[in-house]
Write a protein that binds this DNA or RNA. Structure first.
Length: 479
RNA sequence: UGCGGGGUAGAGCAGUGGCAGCUCGUGUGGCUCAUAACCACAAGGUCGCAGGUUCGAGUCCUGCCCCCGCGACCA
């Protein structure tokens, strides 16, 4: 029937995955699962790792291994995380894949009309081995604050991409909504950047300064700037230019990225696509950062929380739930163990888990486990669906929880235990069957967010019979 | 300094002109099917500050204060 193509950004493989990577995977997974549930039959959900560049070269040197060994190790760690989180991606691209390297060289050639060679003049500190901006240097009187020595003026020859000429087209695509940036606050940031006009960008490095990259076609002295080539993964993974998947799936329906890389995805990447004569993605969803204990995650602060620590204790679904409901979908959020445990105990164990278990218990106790005919649920799910369409995952779950609470209220109002005492079996059956239908509807809405939980709930009430849970859905943990 | 975002109950947030709301936490009451869970009610806010527009302002305008991003050839 219909196709759906979604990407996450591809994490830079210079270290281990953290919560920030986890949330991005889950965002995309919710959208992919929701698309499948809504009737998309052909879904490509791609993620991967970005593996070239100076940071990786340096890190490898530090650890006395080759860059390839380093990225092999780190890329695997991201694959492991995807599995732990139950992410339903069906592609995983590495920028060191041969296919990607060859295809990005084809892309380079195909946009060569917009590529020119130019001298780059920069202020360089030998101590830092780094270029600094004019403004930064000026602030420090042209003396490196780290090494207390004057910056050298260094001239380097690079290739440049004529990004500036695409400013208007990109602006037009954003303003017309054909390239939609969610949320609006992020869209506004980009529009104001575009209003100032984009500058051409350097897209290569001399190979004698940095060898760990993809060769520029026809010039052995240069490799592609890592970002330039990494962005191309979104079409090389589909087999640009000749593969039928590319023709079928491009443009992307959604690209999911973090707020730190918005410029690359809302300015440079559209520029590349326009130069190639390709359509822009339909939606760019920009999520915020996950802080830990109110502070930016940082190794030096030692406040990092490893995703697997959470998953090992509480399961993937609980973690997915926390990320999707308690990290604001349009903003930065905070992970703390206190908040996570509160959400787990109150919302998952007490409200949802207990709702399932009290319904199961009553059907067993009063009706020998027989539910009978289950009515169609008639709740209006428009708000829920609308929220997901707009990437308001937090609100979508609020909607689901309205119904979870609704069940608990319904049970308290109807008092099935009292009906049982009165002996009105048919009325009792209707009340419990209705509660079951609500739970099944909740399970369906939960599927994109908590796939395992959804299945567990559905398995309880298959075929009009109750299949008792071996364990509680969310066993309560002592704090 | 330039651009952008934000400052609403103890905490986290919603609310773009019409009696200040939600969740958690707190207190009181109810229920007993259930994971000591669930349900109801209540307390708690001079909506950053100062002016202005308006019959009426978290909501619009002006000025100011504070916090956070971006303005990097670090991905």
């Amino acid at each position: 029937m219909s196709k759906f193509y979604i990407n996450t950004s591809i994490p830079y493989a210079n270290g281990a995955p953290h919560i920030g990577h986890a949330i991005e995977f889950v965002y995309a997974d919710v959208l992919a699962r929701f698309a499948r549930q809504s009737g998309a039959t052909d879904v490509v959900f791609a993620t991967g790792t970005d593996e070239h560049g100076s940071k990786i070269a340096e890190k490898a040197l530090e650890q006395k291994i080759t860059p390839q060994e380093l990225v092999d190790k780190n890329s695997q760690a991201f694959k492991d995380l995807l599995k732990q989180l139950n992410i339903s991606n069906n592609r995983f691209i590495r920028t060191t894949d041969k296919g990607h390297e060859e295809r990005s060289q084809i892309i380079w050639k195909n946009i060569s009309k917009d590529i020119y060679k130019n001298k780059y003049m920069g202020l360089y500190c030998v101590g830092c081995e780094e270029f600094v901006t004019e403004t930064f240097a000026k602030e420090h009187n042209y003396i490196c604050p780290n090494h207390n020595r004057p910056y050298d003026k260094i001239e380097e020859e690079n290739y440049f991409f004529s990004l500036s000429k695409y400013t208007e087209q990109i602006k037009e695509a954003i303003n017309s909504g054909s390239f939609k940036i969610i949320p609006d606050t992020k869209k506004n940031e980009i529009v104001s950047l575009l209003n100032e006009g984009l500058e051409d960008i350097s897209i290569s490095r001399p190979v004698d300064k940095l060898a760990w990259g993809i060769a520029v076609p026809g010039d052995k002295t240069q490799v592609m700037y890592v970002w330039f080539e990494a962005l191309m993964n979104y079409i090389t993974v589909l087999g640009y230019p000749e593969h039928e998947d590319f023709k079928k799936y491009w443009p992307a329906d959604v690209q999911v990225i973090g707020k730190d890389i918005i410029r690359f995805h809302a300015a440079i990447w559209p520029g590349i696509l326009l130069a190639l004569g390709l359509e822009l993605p339909a939606i760019l969803y920009v999520h915020g950062f996950v802080n830990v204990d109110g502070q930016k995650m940082s190794k030096s602060l030692g406040n990092g929380v490893e995703p697997h620590e959470i998953i090992d204790t509480y399961g993937a679904d609980a973690f997915r739930y926390y990320l999707m409901r308690h990290i604001p979908s349009y903003n930065d959020g905070d992970f703390t163990w206190d908040k996570f445990e509160a959400a787990y105990n109150n919302e998952l164990a007490n409200e949802l888990g207990n709702a399932v278990s009290r319904v199961v218990a009553m059907v067993e106790k009063y009706q020998d486990g027989i539910v009978g005919e289950i009515p169609e649920s008639e709740h209006d799910t428009f708000q829920y669906r609308d929220a997901i369409t707009h990437c308001r995952f937090d609100r979508a779950l609020d909607e689901v929880w309205e119904q979870v609470r609704g069940i608990n209220q319904y049970i308290d109002t109807e008092k099935p235990w009292a009906i049982a005492k009165e002996g009105d079996a048919e009325h009792l059956r209707e009340v419990l069957a209705y509660a079951v239908s609500c739970l099944l509807e909740i399970a369906e809405m939960l599927e994109p967010f908590m796939p395992e939980t959804a299945i567990k709930i559905q398995n309880c009430f298959k075929e009009g019979l109750v299949a008792p849970l071996e364990h509680s859905l969310f066993p309560k943990k002592e704090a």
